Simulated assay, not measured.
Amino acid sequence: MNKLNLMRKTNLLQKSSVLFLAALMSIFFISCSDDDDDDEYGNWVESSTFDGNSRANSVSFTIGNKGYLVTGYDGDDYLNDTWEYNSDDDYWVQRAAFPGTPRSGAVGFTINGKGYLGTGFDGDNELKDFWEYDPTTDSWTQKADFGGTARYGAIGFSIGNSGYIGTGYDGSEQKDFWKYDVATDSWEQSVGFGGQKRKDASVFVIDDIAYVGLGIHNGAYEEDFYSFNGTNWTRLTDLDDDDDDDDDFEILLSSGVSFSLNGLGYITTGISGSITTESWVYDPSSDTWDELPEFEGSARQNASAFTFPNKAFVAMGRSGSYYFDDVWEFRPDELENEDD
Rank of each mutant, 00 (worst) to 15 (best):
K3N: 15
N5A: 11
M7A: 13
N11V: 11
L13Y: 14
F20W: 12
L21I: 14
A22L: 10
A23E: 14
L24M: 15
S26V: 14
I27G: 08
F28K: 09
I30N: 14
I30Q: 14
C32A: 12
C32Q: 15
S33N: 15
D34L: 12
D35G: 09
D35K: 15
D39C: 11
V45P: 04
E46R: 05
S47P: 03
S48Y: 12
T49W: 00
T49M: 00
N53E: 12
S54R: 02
T62A: 03
G64V: 05
D76P: 01
Y78T: 07
Y78K: 06
L79C: 06
N80T: 12
W83V: 04
Y85I: 10
D88P: 01
D88G: 06
D89H: 05
A96F: 00
F98H: 07
P99L: 09
T101H: 02
T101L: 01
A106H: 00
T110D: 08
G113Q: 09
G115R: 01
G120Y: 11
L127W: 03
D129G: 04
D134Q: 02
T136S: 00
W140A: 01
A144D: 13
F146M: 02
F146W: 03
G147Y: 07
Y152S: 13
A154K: 05
G156L: 05
G156T: 09
G160D: 09
N161K: 10
G163L: 02
G163W: 01
G163Q: 03
T167D: 07
D170Q: 12
G171N: 12
E173V: 07
F177G: 07
W178V: 09
A183T: 11
T184M: 00
Q189K: 12
Q189D: 11
S190M: 05
S190E: 15
G192N: 15
R198P: 04
K199M: 12
A201E: 08
A201R: 03
S202W: 10
V203A: 08
V203L: 03
F204N: 08
F204T: 08
V205T: 10
D208P: 02
I209S: 02
I209W: 00
Y211M: 05
V212Q: 04
N218C: 10
A220V: 09
A220R: 10
Y221L: 10
Y221N: 13
T231N: 14
T231S: 13
W233H: 09
R235E: 15
D244S: 13
E250H: 05
E250N: 08
I251T: 06
I251K: 01
S255K: 07
S258C: 01
F259N: 04
G265V: 01
I275N: 06
S279G: 11
W280C: 02
Y282W: 06
D283H: 09
S285T: 15
T288R: 08
W289P: 00
P293W: 07
P293R: 05
E294L: 04
F295W: 14
F295N: 12
E296C: 05
S298Q: 12
S298W: 06
A299M: 10
Q301L: 02
A305T: 15
A305E: 13
F308C: 11
P309I: 13
A312K: 06
F313A: 13
V314I: 05
G317D: 07
G320W: 04
G320V: 06
S321P: 07
V327P: 00
E329F: 00
E329I: 00
E329G: 01
E329W: 00
P332H: 07
L335F: 14
